[in-house]
Design a protein around this nucleic acid. Structure first.
Lengths: 336, 336
DNA sequence: CTGAAAGCGCTTACAG
DNA sequence: CTGAAAGCGCTTACAG
């Protein structure tokens, strides 16, 4: 059950291990004839490279790393990450790259993982998610000089390359749509306030509301769970100055909000309009079906990977904003 | 930015690299005094082990592997895997183990990944999901003799250790409950027919229905998506011999089925009762709330990991069935 | 109890 | 164009 090594190939081919390595890696230093013979023998005896040995010699690992710090209970609930990962995987596996995924408990553990991965050359680059205000990870990764693409909000990405999620455009589209319908009292059930993309959305809300000359949207921060989404909705809908429309930072909270509205005897969209950020089957299946800001998350992950691979290849891709989300009007929005 | 190695420690301590290695790994062969000194120096200069080098020397990698072969679009939709993974991660990280996760396209790619992982000692063991009828992975893993715990159905697990998901108990509970309510015409919207746990559920249905002296449940196979769940429901509800109750193999399909029933003008549970396999926020948030077969999936993942770690430690844990799912009656079930 | 050495499978300067 | 050697950071027999 012993795997063949380059030493086996070298013996059979009657050349040195070094020559075999050059031939196998398409490097100059061997004749065309030797290269051909080495490749044929490698194929014949079923040789495959030993990634661990390569990594120890400092060769690229053909692996990119991603650490997730969201609490476990949110990971299971939000399809966002699995969709992102499926797009990432699709792009990587087409190029024979692997993904190393690690769930971490806190930012120190996360940074320790990056340091280890990079110093052991276990990864050739990183995908960085969920940027926070004054994120300590940025400085560390800049110092390590590990190829990194920041996903999501990018204002605090420092010198790292980023692929922004264009949340501002989403806010604009949602608010303009609601205002066109006649709404003036907007609310937002937001995610974790320390996440940068929450901040970006909040600022965009302020700006867009001011630009359209309506009162600023009331914002309630949550942890993304259905429970907190329901609680926030209950609070908003029982306040004396009840909003006529609510925008939610994810679909789970929007669905929970819809249930609360029904429970309170309010009609949707008659009494209150609802919009979910990120579309999903959930949004299509509830009654009335949920108006949503949709984006192609797997494609987003795939684009981020392509950028990262360019970076690893020594290019210097530009930071950009990704495609804006687009609004899919369904049954939960109407005139106030 | 160069990481300290055991050679640095050896130089400072005035001993050999071998002695340092023994001290660091708590192996016999060094005096208590030397061990203490080595440990102190390692801590002082911030030494951490290089996993790649250890792996190349055949030491345990403190990593377990898991390959997922579900199509990407299903991964994003079903919370099952993220919940399982979060339980697995929780248990692993408490013991300083890492998880290697790889999404693969087909069974050959999956087997290739296992061979590579094992021969490079990138993993100490595997978690195996989604067993199929005559699963070719079993024979390969038996031959490689890699510590493996099979999750889910275990009938075809060969000599591998398994932690069955106890689907039979779930079927019994659901069917007995429906029959007690007065149902006699049951249907089931099942998952992929080639998955072993689908087969196990089908057989359990046949057996339980026969035991309770009611006609066998009509079964429609799907790919787990909401689309196919909706289509299957439409077909069942428009057949001349309409079932009075439908059990779904996952929550997404059950929610889709509920939407179809509403669309067709049928009352739930007045005209038809619905039960979802696996509870989730979706089930709690729809109207009426969905009766569900609930199980603690993170705990299940954690238990599987504990079994695997026992196996890796050289013990021979027994194969068992996990806790049975329990029925949570909600609004979608009632008398026919 | 300790040291010196070989080896894991590869890559990469360094000589010819 | 090719070979022989050193090295990546560790572990583990093998001698003392």
């Amino acid at each position: 059950v012993k795997r063949p090594t380059i030493a086996d190939i070298a013996r059979r081919a009657g050349v040195s291990k070094g020559a075999v390595s050059f031939a196998l890696n398409d490097q100059p230093g061997v004749s065309a004839e030797t290269r051909r013979r080495v490749l044929a023998i490698a194929k014949e005896i079923g040789w495959t490279p030993n990634g661990v040995a390569r990594a120890l010699s400092g060769a690229p690992s053909h692996t990119i790393g991603m650490a997730l710090r969201r609490p476990a209970r949110i990971l299971g609930v939000e399809p966002f990450f699995m969709e992102l990962i499926s797009g990432v995987e699709a792009e990587l596996s087409a190029r024979e790259y692997a993904l190393s995924l690690q769930v971490v408990g806190d930012v120190d553990a996360e940074i320790a993982v990056y340091r280890r991965w990079w110093s052991e050359r276990r990864v050739d680059g990183l995908l960085l998610c969920d940027l926070r205000v004054d994120d300590p990870r940025i400085g560390v990764l800049e110092e390590l000089a590990v190829p990194t693409v920041v996903i999501g909000a990018a204002a605090g990405a420092g010198s790292l390359v980023s692929l922004e999620s264009n949340d501002g455009a989403g806010v604009t589209e949602a608010v303009e749509y609601l205002v066109t319908l006649g709404h003036r009292h907007l609310a937002r059930v937001a995610g974790l306030p320390e996440l940068l993309h929450t901040v970006v959305r909040t600022e965009a809300f302020t700006e867009v509301c001011a630009g359209l000359d309506i009162p600023p949207a009331v914002t309630v921060f949550t942890d993304y769970t259905g429970e907190e989404g329901a609680r926030a909705t209950r609070r908003l809908l029982s306040s004396r100055n009840r909003p006529t429309a609510i925008v939610y930072d994810n679909d789970v909270m929007a669905i929970a909000g819809l249930a609360v509205a029904h429970e309170m005897g309010l009609s949707v969209p008659g009494d209150v309009s609802l919009i979910a950020w990120d579309d999903s089957v959930l949004c299509q299946l509830v009654h009335p079906p949920m108006t949503a800001l949709s984006r192609d998350i797997p494609a987003y992950g795939a684009r981020a990977v392509r950028k990262l691979l360019e970076l690893i290849a020594g290019q210097r891709p530009a930071s950009l904003a990704d495609e804006p989300p687009h609004l899919i009007p369904r049954g939960t929005t109407g005139r106030p």
